[in-house]
Design a protein around this nucleic acid. Structure first.
Length: 445
DNA sequence: TCTGGGGTCCTAGGACCC
DNA sequence: TCTGGGGTCCTAGGACCC
């Protein structure tokens, strides 16, 4: 914890809804709900007008509709939100090089690295007030709430205190007095489960939390969270503002209006999600070794399966195949409401880029251009393609070239099956009907 | 027809190695 | 024959955040 209130937390008010109201004057002053509009949608953001009717983030859209039927329900225009966010983050970065975005609408700014004469309360307060006005001007009228404090924790608590359109400064030295009467829920990382565990131990406020010793807290909520709570209850927080955070995983998932039961359809959807993930990995110059799938069953139980490759990949075919093979493990007969694909264990792509080859697949030698016939056959066996073999069953092409195709076979649904080489002329090897092309929308009803 | 989508971090158990 | 730790990697699940 610092001696000055030099950490600033900025939070754009009802961000998605505010952007919609800004861009569509007819929505100004009216309840607006942005989120999923389908039968299984939830609210991402509700305007303050909608909040008056009890509409909240994460509430099902169904319930939001019943609470506020006359609200405008919008699916969201993420491009517009990203644009507005970029304007704000750019503005913040012009203030200090140390800006840590937490999401599109939230960021920490380290004012100790800003160009300020000093970090006295009066100085930072005036500066933050001006910053709020600059945000409004730069974004065409979006309002932000700002908190200033001696740590991330305090700055964040402060920005939340008088939302919306507010500026709150917690003078250094007053942090613990501010926190003591508050619910333990103000502490980041305390959600419904932790809150309930603490309540059962007789702890509901920060003041009460302060009296629980470290060993007891660790026993209650585990090592990491226990030590974290012990410190934060005392406003003890030295976490630095970090401008750069590495991406750890990339994923794509979807919840479907009707539970899925058709395995082929599920495989097709996983394939599509794998392409989406691969595209984003590619765009950001990333690749990863661990491919995961997520499956939420009809009763909301959520399963995950993952498999780690020896080399990182960003190939849609590899990710898709692994994803499909991970699904074979699972009993989905009761119906599936959500499917997802993710890649983690990310590495920079640069290494591969230097050598112009991807690392996860063996190098495919160039074909002799004279061998027109072989070339034609090679096209039949593109890496990533599904094939079948009379003895080995189903597999997929790992590499091909010079009249040879290497095939990795999936055994009992487990990904790292045996790799075999075959002559491209081997009659026992045939292209397998690919599952990559699945109808855009299949209505089981 | 309760319960999104994109993430982060933690825990616990097992394999494996020294 | 029996019995040790510690460290790392992997997998599955779960809490939490916006």
């Amino acid at each position: 914890m610092r001696q000055q209130a030099s950490i600033l937390h900025l939070d754009l008010d009802a961000f998605f809804a505010s952007v919609e109201q800004r861009d569509k004057p007819s929505l100004q002053g009216k309840p607006v709900v942005v989120g999923g509009v389908g039968g299984r949608g939830v609210v991402a953001t509700a305007s303050y007008e909608a909040r008056r009717y009890g509409v909240r983030s994460a509430m099902s859209t169904r319930e939001a509709r019943s609470r506020c039927p006359h609200a405008a329900f919008l699916t969201g225009r993420f491009h517009a939100y990203q644009e507005a966010s970029a304007v704000v983050m750019g503005l913040l970065r012009s203030v200090s090089p140390l800006v840590e975005p937490l999401s599109l609408d939230e960021a920490f700014v380290d004012l100790a690295r800003a160009d300020l004469p000093d970090l006295e309360v009066e100085t930072v307060t005036a500066y933050a007030a001006e910053l709020r006005e600059r945000v409004a001007v730069a974004t065409g009228g979006l309002t932000a709430s700002i908190g200033l404090g001696s740590s991330k924790f305090i700055a964040k608590v402060a920005s939340d205190l008088e939302k919306p359109d507010a500026l709150v400064v917690v003078p250094p030295g007053t942090e613990r007095d501010l926190l003591r009467p508050m619910s333990v829920n103000v502490i980041p990382g305390v959600g419904p489960v932790t809150s309930e565990r603490l309540r059962r131990a007789g702890v509901t406020t920060v003041a009460e939390l302060e009296t629980v010793d470290l060993d007891e807290l660790v026993r209650l909520v585990g090592q990491a969270q226990g030590t974290g709570l012990h410190a934060l209850a005392r406003a003890d927080d030295d976490r630095p503002v970090l401008a750069e955070r590495e991406t750890k995983s990339v994923s794509s998932e979807g919840t479907y209006e009707t539970d899925l039961t058709d395995r082929r359809l599920m495989e097709g959807l996983l394939t599509r999600q794998a392409s989406e993930v691969a595209g984003r990995l590619n765009k950001h110059g990333l690749s990863g070794r661990t491919v995961s799938i997520k499956v939420r069953l009809h009763d909301f139980t959520t399963l995950s399966r993952s498999s780690t490759l020896t080399e990182p990949t960003d190939s849609a075919a590899t990710i898709g195949r692994l994803a499909r093979s991970l699904l074979t493990d699972l009993d989905t007969s009761g119906g599936v409401r959500l499917l997802g694909v993710g890649v983690s264990g990310l590495a920079d792509w640069i290494q591969d880029d230097l050598f112009g080859e991807t690392a996860e697949e063996p190098e495919v030698p160039e074909l002799d251009p004279v061998e027109a016939g072989v070339r034609a056959r090679r096209a039949t066996y593109a890496p990533g393609q599904d094939v079948e073999h009379d003895e080995m069953g189903r597999g997929w092409v790992w590499g091909s070239g010079r009249g040879v195709v290497t095939v990795r076979f999936e055994t009992a649904g487990r990904p790292p099956g045996p790799v075999r080489s075959y002559s491209i002329e081997d009659p026992a090897l045939r292209p397998w009907q690919p599952v990559n092309d699945v109808p855009e929308a299949v209505d089981p009803a």
